[in-house]
Amino acid sequence: MRQSQNTAGLRFIRMALEKNAHESVRTALAEAYPRLWRFCLTTTGRRDRADDLAQMASLRALEKAHLFEPGTALDRWVFRIAQRIWLNELRAETVRQGGGVSQVDDIDLPDERASTETNVFARQVFATVMALPEAQRTAVVLVYVEGYSYKEAAAILEIPIGTVMSRLAAARARLSSPSSEAKGARA
């Protein structure tokens, strides 16, 4: 009797933890969703594909909520899920459908600050980063926009830290002042 009570008690704790995991993952996903979508936009280079990938990644994360370790960063976990789905399931199909992987022309930055020079510059910066090769722009966004360390970015992309460094170095060389456009013209 006492043994069975203990078993039942453990079952209770497990059920509570599983339910709690689902709820906390769902809540955190809702909060992180715009950033997940932005990461997907960076990765896919296309707004329609970003919509699809962010939805797929968040659904996959919920299915795997029991695997999520509470106390670790959910955003990094779901970014990694998105990266895997992109590489394993969507990327080849997107390329096959033509038009290249990157199509950022349909992305308009919000025009909140009227048409200031700052805003124009922001558009240029955005377009320049999005014109980088996929591997470079993904590293740029993870480290310079999301603020991840090299180690964290490497874990999300599942590549060595040295590869993150070389991608960032290549990206910096293309993005550096005085004018990356001039450099692009020379290239």
């Binding site: 960076t42 707004r47 962010a54 909140e112 922001a122 910066v125 955005f126 310079y144 926009v145 993005l175």
Partner: peptide
Amino acid sequence: QIREAFDAVLPLSP
């Protein structure tokens, strides 16, 4: 500036 430009994209998220 890169960070600011990409932060401006967030409101476009569905």
